[in-house]
Amino acid sequence: MSLGFTIVKRLAHMVFVMFGISVLVFLIFFATPGADPAARIAGRNASPQTVALIRKEFGLDKPLPVQYLRMMDRLVIRRDLTSYVNLGEKVVPTIFRAAPVTLSLVFGAAVIWIVFSILVGVLAAAFKDRTLDRLLMILSLIGISIPVFWLGEVVNLVSQGLLHNTWLFSWVPPLGYVPLHRDPALWFKSLVLPWFTLALAFIGIYGRVLRANIVEAMQEDYIRLARAKGLPEAQVLIRHALRCSMIAIFTLFGLDFGALVGGGALLTEVVFGLPGVGYLTYQALTNLDLPMIMATVTYASFFVVSANAMVDILYSVFDPRVRND
């Protein structure tokens, strides 16, 4: 089978998965008691007649498949779907307004976790089985094991509370997001702590994977050849072993980045009060705002599923065995 066919097949699969997710979400919503959008739109103390009229006006009296199609039409094709909670608020632009927040958070964190994990991986591999290696690996393991929301709370406690009035954290601005174009310095300052909080677990994971890959690569023939040519050990490690080991990291990175941009950084956004896509998703879910839920879920699943698809396609480029499934 050709690569082109694999890609087409994968894309069809992707669309099908997104369809499945949206249908499931839709059905779960309508199975939830107390979620009746008509009563919620009508407001407290509304008479039953008013609720019935609203149900009709919003098309909530139609059969579910019809409602589903109408909603998806307004979401994907006409893009004028509006929220049930903040009536009149168009959901698609709202997501696009939240996206820069999430992108700022995830990009910054990604830079940090790539730089630090390379540092950790290379140092640990270079000092394999010595104290520094063991220390770094233990720290990585701890980093992986800390719940991100709890870490965020502790960071807030220290930086906003206990030590806020000392030189160490007096620069920390209040929680929340400042757009980059409004004040670049403040943007940076308000994101530094969220970046590190989000990045910590990834530094641990990537550092460990990288170390393992480098250690393995150092046994390969081409490294022996490089050494035989008399290249210095540091150069062998960085120029040859690291470069080769980065491939595994990048597939990993694709998946994680896709999921985070799609709203996976929800906990970090909630704890630090960053109004990104994850926060929006969380709010829509707790408000049971169906149009917003459908929009954020479609958005998130797009990123997750396409990152998946991309990694799979890359795999099939590297390893033709997978294509024969």
Binding site: L24, I28, T32, G34, T281, L285, I293, A300, S301
Partner: peptide, 26 residues
């Protein structure tokens, strides 16, 4: 294999929080 992999992909990208909220109320 194909059916299972679609199921797994749906699960992978599914908003677990919605599931948790709805189920707890139901």
């Amino acid at each position: 294999n194909r059916v299972i992999s679609v199921m797994l992909d749906i699960l992978w990208a599914f908003p677990i929080y919605l599931l948790a909220i709805s189920l707890s109320i139901i």
